[in-house]
Every structure is written in C-alpha cells, then in structure tokens.
Design a binder for these strands. Structure first.
Lengths: 332, 332
DNA sequence: AGTATTCTTGTTACCGGTATCCTAATGGCT
DNA sequence: AGCCATTAGGATACCGGTAACAAGAATACT
C-alpha cells in the first residue's frame, strides 16, 4: 500500500480511502491511485484491515460431513446469501463428533469470524460456554427441538418422525420397525426416536426394539439392506421406517432380491427426500426437509443480526413435509 | 493478550511464546500463563499473528457448486488432509462462471490464503495472471487435459469419454448420441465431446449432433428425460451417452414410461458413478471418477509445496474406470 | 468582505500479535 | 576461579492497514 501511495503521490491513508470510501476521494486522485494499484498488481490485505476494524468478514460453519448432500446443500444456501453481502465462508467438518467440534470451534474463534453456523443443538458444555462468552451471532441448524445457544433454524425432528409414523399407521401398517442412527451423539436421532415411539404409543401399538446403525457404518444402501435382513430375523414386521433415504433404498433393493413385495407385504419409508428415493422402484415414501432453505435462513438471520437488528426471532421452524410414494401405497 | 500477561506477571512476548513455542518457556511460568488464559477466557487472535508471519493457515477453494455431491466430495477429501495439518478451509462457489470465479479469486487473495484449489482449468486470463503473480501454490482439480497455472490433479475427461464410447461400441451400439453440458464455459465438457467424437470417428461411425443441456438447466433427472425425448425425434439412435448420471437416470425412467427396452432397444450410459445409478433399474453403466481422492491429493500437493518441496510433479492423473452395468448389457 | 461549510488530504496512534536481538541468570567444565 | 553454553524472559520494532482528528483550500452564504 505504501508503494501504491508513493507511486501516486499521496499517503497510504488516501489509498485506503480509495478502497474503502471511494466517494470521499477526489475523482482525479482516485484515478491516479487506481492506476497505480493496477500497475503494481496491488492486492489489499484484509487481515491487516480486520485487525483494526475488528470485523473479519468471515462466517464459519461446522457440518458433520460434506459427503452428504444434505449438509452441502445447507452450506450452498448459506453461501449464496452471505456472499451476496460480501462475507466469506469458512468450513470445518466434525465427523459427527462433539469433541472434534469443540476443538474446531476453538480454532475457528481464533480467526475472529463475524458469525458461526453449527449443525444440530448438541455441543459440549465447554463449547456452549465458549460461544456464549464470545458474543458473535451463532445459528444452529437442522433442529428446533431444544434450546439454542443463540439462534436456531430448522424443523422438529421429533414431529417429523411422529408424522411419518402416523402416516405409516394410516396406510395400514401396524408392526412398524424403526432404524435409526446412533442416539447418544446426535440429538436429531434421539428426537426422531422419541417422535416414533410417541406415535406408536398413541396408536396403541407396541414398538419393536429400535435398530441402531453403528456410527462407523458408511451411509450407503447396503447398510440398509443389512438392517432389513437383521430386523426380519428378530421380529415380525410389516413396515420399516429408516431415518435415511439411503438406507431405505438399500432395503427396497434387498426386498426385491428376497422376493418381498414392497409395499404390500412390507412398507418402507425414508427420511430427507434424496434423489435416490425418487429413482428407485417402487419410489420411496419419505420426509422432505428444507435443506437449502435452512442455510439461506441462517444467512439471513446472521445478516440481520450483524446489521444491528436485535429483534430476530431466535428459533425459526421451517417445517417438513411427508411425501407419500409407492413404497407405502398398499393396494389390496 | 496484554491482560493475560499482566495477570501472570510476564510480558506479552512470554504469553505469545507459551502459545507458539511452549518448549522455550519455563514449565512453571507456562503453567501460570495457561491458568491466566483459562481464567480470562482468552482466545488468541490469528489475524494479528498472520499479519506478522505472513501465513494465514488458510487454504481457499472454489467449486462450481456445493449442490453436487461430486465437488462436495472433493472438498471433504481436501478438508481431511489439510485440517490434519492445522490449516483451515475457505470456500466459494462460482456457479460455473469464470467471471464470477475471477472476482472470487480477487477477493480471496485479499485474505492471504497459503494455497488455492480451483475446479477445472478454465479461468479468465486476468485470473491466471493474478494467480501466477501471487506466487502461492495453486492446484486445479478435475482436469488434466490442459496446462495448469501451477499444479493439477484429476483425470482426462477426453480419455474417459473416449473409453466409454469405445465401450458402447464394443457392446454393439452404433448410433450413439451424446448429451453434454454447455461447452463454451467448461473445458471438462469440451474435452468429453472431443473424446466421444474421436472414438466415433476411429470406429468409422457418424456421430449424431451433440445435444447440449442448457447452462441454466437444473441437474435433475427430468432434464435427462427431456433430452432423450428430443433426441429420439431428431435422429435414429440406439444408445445415449450422458455426461451426468443424473440425466442418464432420468432417461432410464423416461424409457420405462415410453416402453423402450433398456438395454436391448436403447443403451444408456452416464458419468460420475453416483448412487442413483446403482439404485435405478436397470443399473447404470457409467464412468467412475476419483472425486474424494482428487481432494486428498490436492491437499497433499499443497502440504508438500508449503513444506518447501519444490519437486512435486505438477500434473497428477488419477485415472477413471468404466463401470459396466445393466443399462448397456444387451442380451439378444 | 467575513464567516460558515464542505471537500480533500494528511497526521497520528493503534489494532494484537511475533521476529529479532539482547540481557541476566544458571550451570557445566577445565 | 574463570569462561562458555544454555535457558528464560524482556525490549523494541514492525506486520499492513484504518479510525479519528486536524488542517488547508475551495465554495457558499449573510
């Protein structure tokens, strides 16, 4: 910057103004400075600026993984909104582990982001304290069933699982099994289990033991196929509600091989409304969740807060919808 | 930091040492300082440190979109590798537009990343000059058919399309249509077209006009279905090679509705080996590309370069594989 | 004409760390 | 005892910008 200043015969301050408040600089001077910048190939250093202004123009986000289109979609929504406002996006993936998340939060805060977006409401106590003490806007996504540290945007996993269970019962299924992710590390999974169990209880049905897919299991169809085979050995069931479309699709493929008639003999439902569920035959009944929209909304909440509005409602429920397709449409 | 120093009775410099070179500080002093940091809830400011050291600990990446699992996978691979080395990941998505990419590069460089990862080899001239002038390691991913600015990791789109076309010919198809993304903004698409045309020519076959899917078209199955209907009206074809599995799957579903027998009456092939292709019936013949591995490799190349090794081979071809499945397996 | 206002640019200090050099103390060795 | 190497921590300057205030010139207004 000093070089640019020297070359255009002004001080650094004027160069800085050209970049930050161009309207405050005489047109002619501005042109001279701009030319000097071009000639020298000058690229401003935001780190230095940030140090002074205390605002880094950075939004940080932590997702469990990028390999799942769900979270990548949410990030795309977030990115769309914040990049329009000139903010950048910093990303970490926590591999679904709260302890990893905590250390990532710590290292992220050292970069002084203007806001932070997290996935889920489950964090270590240390992480929550750290965030609260830091005072930047924090948006937690994908869940609204618990209290957020600051703000939350998402849908109720409990209600979604409840609604899908009710839908299965309405379709005539009674012995409905439930296949879930590990519940200890993940409030989303726990809330879904609660919703499922509540719906079964309300209908006076007894729930078979919940089948838990191990944490280490890869999210791929074969895992769902295995779960289906295991379930059929241990209980007499007429429907399975998977909390991931990927698993549900695997179960549909396995049923075909096993000669099980879906949906008449066995109903199958998934969660998330991924493309695979629309493509498999029979097409998959599922719960559609607002993946992209959660990211966009999180972005808007952050921008509102950064522009000084204190009024943002701290919890935004974007809802979900039950998509009923062939895999639960009995015709007998 | 000054507060921490005061509370523990040392200077800022010693506090800085505790964080950066703890072995140079007396164990007892170190303990006192650490306690003071904990008591005050001190979080170091990396922006300030970076200003001095000239290294931000940041790797920036630009992808066309996050909504496509392909690029998200590559980012996950990159993130895995670099976060292990203590580097952070900064992301932008360019919506497949070089001009957008150029302005993103400009704004990214202001944050002084230690390295930059791009998708593809197509960039504006200004962008290339800027990058070359800046001197940080740059890795371009997903293509190796052209010259990189600095380093590249990927596979040859030309060869991949060539190999798939040969495979279709080997399977007995002759009137093979090709459905591609827009070629003017995307070298990947152009190279695939070249590979396809070359293979057709080598086999002495005439290629029907290439069907181009519009830039604005959403990457969803219905777009592929439309392409198939259009193609059948304008030419007599016995196979279609789509450069995206998503489109290919749409064509398979459309064929079912239209009563076309895949693979006997019409062969269908895709590109990328997405999950949808494994789940649809008939299962989809496709080209598998090293999505995750490209990201990991890019990370390793960056780390090698940052640790001073000048020797890294600038172009790494990770190859691809042809996955032959039911959609092209004729049985007559 | 004299004063107020606006426009334009400069001066100064500081953001929060860290590299570098330097001093003082401690201990080992001849 | 004398000297050198090592360890521990301080002093200083600077990284590359920007806020805040100041000051001179041009313009407006009474």
């Amino acid at each position: 910057m000093a070089e640019v200043a020297a070359l255009s015969g002004v001080t650094k301050m004027t160069v800085s103004r050209v970049l930050r408040h161009p309207e405050k600089v005489n047109l002619e001077t501005r042109k001279r400075v701009t030319e000097a910048m071009a000639k020298l190939g000058y690229v401003a250093n935001r780190l230095a600026g940030s140090l002074n202004t205390g605002t880094s123009g950075l939004v940080a986000a932590i997702v469990p993984t990028l390999r799942h289109s769900l979270f990548a979609d949410t990030l795309e929504g977030l990115s769309d909104v914040i990049s329009e406002a000139g903010l950048g996006l910093f990303i970490s993936s926590s591999a679904y582990r709260s302890d990893v998340e905590e250390s990532q939060i710590r290292s992220i805060l050292e970069r002084r982001p203007d806001a932070l977006v997290l996935t889920g409401l489950t964090h270590t106590k240390a992480a929550r304290d750290l965030l609260r003490g830091f005072g930047i806007p924090v948006v937690e996504t994908w869940e609204t069933d618990d209290d957020p540290v600051d703000m939350a945007v998402g849908y109720s996993n409990r209600e979604a699982a409840h609604a899908m269970t009710v839908e299965l019962i309405r379709s005539g299924y009674r012995r409905i099994a439930f296949v879930n992710g590990p519940m200890e590390a993940n409030e989303r999974a726990r809330h879904r289990a609660e919703g499922y169990l509540a719906a079964m209880k309300e209908a006076g049905l007894s729930a078979p033991p919940i089948h838990v897919v191990h944490h280490e299991a890869v999210i791929q169809p074969e895992t769902g196929a295995k779960a289906l085979r295991a379930l059929r050995q241990q209980a007499d069931i007429d429907a399975v509600f998977f909390t991931s479309d990927v698993f549900a699709v695997g179960a549909i493929l396995a049923s075909r091989e096993l000669g099980i008639d879906v949906p008449n003999q066995l109903g199958i439902a998934g969660f998330h409304d991924l493309e695979v569920g629309r493509v498999v035959s029979p097409t998959l009944t599922t719960v559609q969740v607002p993946t992209l929209e959660m990211g966009r909304k999180a972005g808007h909440m952050i921008l509102a807060r950064l522009s000084g509005k204190r009024s943002t409602r701290p919890r935004q429920d974007l809802g979900f919808s039950i998509i009923s397709r062939e895999s639960t449409r009995r015709n007998h």
